[in-house]
């Protein structure tokens, strides 16, 4: 089945290679210094080049295995985009967007409610979970003197 679709391990290692190349390119704008007095670009250049080499090596090995019809090391042989994790990530982003404006308690209650609904809990179960979670954590963090944004409740 891996023959038609490009497996995720290959996509991942290509991404790592591209990021490493970008990193290395930027590392060359930092001063390397000398061996007697290494500069801020010393370690980044070495690390970036090594990361490019390692990701290229893994890419070649994995691509060969793919061509030979073997599966990659420990990689999942199939991957689909399931709906729930995507909904989770979308609600994560929403939460961060409303976190400071609405304040900790309100945004957290809304966030926990949405997550709970995504997990297919009944609306009143979600209401109990979200309200108690929001208030409980606010209490704990206040006791520990962690400043949380109050937002509209402030």
């Amino acid at each position: 089945m891996a023959s038609r679709k490009i497996p995720i391990n290959i996509i991942f290692v290509i991404c790592v290679f591209v990021v490493s190349a970008f990193y290395t390119f930027n590392a060359f704008s930092l001063s390397f210094g000398s061996f007697k007095s290494p500069g801020p670009g010393f370690i980044p250049r070495i690390t970036g080049i090594l990361a490019m080499l390692f990701s290229a090596a893994i890419l070649i090995i994995d691509a060969r295995k793919l061509a030979a019809g073997e599966e990659g090391d420990g990689a999942e042989d199939s991957f689909a985009f399931p709906l729930r994790p995507i909904l989770f990530v979308v609600s994560f982003i929403l939460y961060v967007l409303i976190f400071e404006t609405l304040g900790y308690v309100v945004s957290t209650v809304i966030f926990a409610f949405i997550l709970s609904m995504i997990m297919r809990n009944k609306w009143w179960v979600s209401a109990i979970i979200s309200i108690s979670t929001g208030i409980a954590f606010f209490a704990i963090f206040s006791l520990l003197a962690v400043p949380l944004p109050l937002g509209i409740l402030g």
Partner: peptide, 29 residues
Amino acid sequence: RILLPIVTVVAFCGAYSMNNSIFDLYLLI
């Protein structure tokens, strides 16, 4: 289905409390 929403809130609050930084929450995601 009950534990996941609660634990998610724990993760976000924990990450936020480190530096009180919204930026850290984007890094988290």
